[in-house]
Simulated scan of single mutants.
Amino acid sequence: FYGCTSLASIKLPASLETIGDGAFGGCTSLASIEFPADSSLEYIGEDAFEGCTSLASIKLPASLKSYWLGACDFDGCTNLASFSSADAADSTKPFLYEGQDTLVPTLVEHLVVDSSVTFIEEQAFVGLKNLKTVELPASLQSIGYSAFDGCTSLESLEFPASLNSIGSYAFDGCTSLESLEFPASLNSIGGGAFLGCTSLASIELPASLKSIGYLAFQRCTSLASIELIKFPASLVPSRFFT
């Protein structure tokens, strides 16, 4: 279907296991791709959807294997703003969140994390500079090292009540992040977790917090209000806010 510029929508069969290289490349009118709930799709070839400039959102099936999703599959999809994968019923770590293997299109502005995910691994979404909003699931317990490092457009974030740890440098350099509300379940914030979040204006640390890492809020130059709820001052490390 390469270059079928009038093709507007696709409904793929459940039996489909492979989408070949360049299969829908250059389909500039393609705005909708529907994968069935019982999809058998495991492989998407290189440049499969390259240049699909009308494609605004996509939800990939849980059957897809991480190592068969190419980094260039969505190159030139200049309107692709929402990206997610279907829940993997037999896994607490669907392919989309396996750390450095994650291949999320760099132009994505909105990201939905699967409802089965309990842990976002290190560098999972590092450097997604267009990412503005993220929906985190109620199941999430931990955010890993540098998970959202360098997501400079990230404006808002709602942590679930289940979250108990935020890793070192998890949100380092998220310069558009203005406010945070930490859940009562949170036990630890890693070193440099919010380093350089220059738009962050206020924080309220919960009573459940047991440790805060070195330089956790360093260079948060707009931070004007900090509330420590029953948090012992002795546990605040040196150069915590500097």
Rank of each mutant, 00 (worst) to 15 (best):
A37V: 09
E46S: 13
Q123Y: 13
L154A: 02
L157R: 09
L195N: 13
S222E: 02
S9G: 08
E122G: 12
Q218K: 02
P13N: 05
A233R: 11
A62L: 10
A233K: 11
L96P: 04
F217R: 02
C174N: 01
S29F: 03
L41N: 06
E178M: 11
S39P: 09
L177Q: 07
L163M: 13
F171P: 00
V117C: 06
G70M: 13
P105N: 12
T175M: 04
I203D: 03
S208P: 11
G150Y: 01
L96S: 12
C72N: 14
D149L: 11
V134M: 10
S208I: 05
C27P: 03
F1A: 15
F240I: 01
L215Q: 11
T18E: 09
Y214I: 07
S153K: 04
F240C: 15
V134W: 05
F159D: 08
F1N: 15
S168T: 07
Y97A: 04
L16G: 10
Y145C: 00
P36Q: 09
K59I: 15
A81N: 12
L111E: 00
P94C: 00
P160C: 07
G191F: 06
L41Y: 02
F171K: 02
G3I: 10
C52N: 14
S29T: 08
G3Q: 02
N164C: 05
F1Q: 15
S84A: 15
Y2Q: 14
S153H: 03
V126I: 14
S39R: 01
G99Q: 00
E158N: 11
W68A: 12
I189F: 04
G51I: 04
I229R: 12
Y2V: 12
P94K: 02
S176H: 09
L96W: 15
T221Y: 06
A224V: 00
F240V: 07
L60T: 05
C197M: 01
G173V: 01
S211R: 05
E42S: 12
G26I: 10
A216E: 05
L30C: 01
D73P: 01
T78F: 03
T118L: 09
S39D: 01
L103K: 15
P232M: 04
R219Y: 08
A48R: 03
G127D: 11
G127N: 15
L55D: 05
F217N: 06
G127M: 05
E98C: 14
K129F: 01
G25R: 10
L177C: 06
C27F: 05
G26V: 09
A89P: 08
I229D: 14
S153I: 04
I19Y: 07
S9D: 10
S238Y: 13
F148D: 08
Q218V: 02
T18D: 11
L186N: 02
L157K: 02
P13K: 05
N187E: 15
T106A: 14
I189P: 04
S176G: 06
S142V: 05
L228F: 14
K93N: 14
S85V: 13
D38V: 09
A161F: 07
L103Y: 12
D101C: 12
E42G: 10
C72Y: 11
S176E: 02
L163H: 09
Q218P: 08
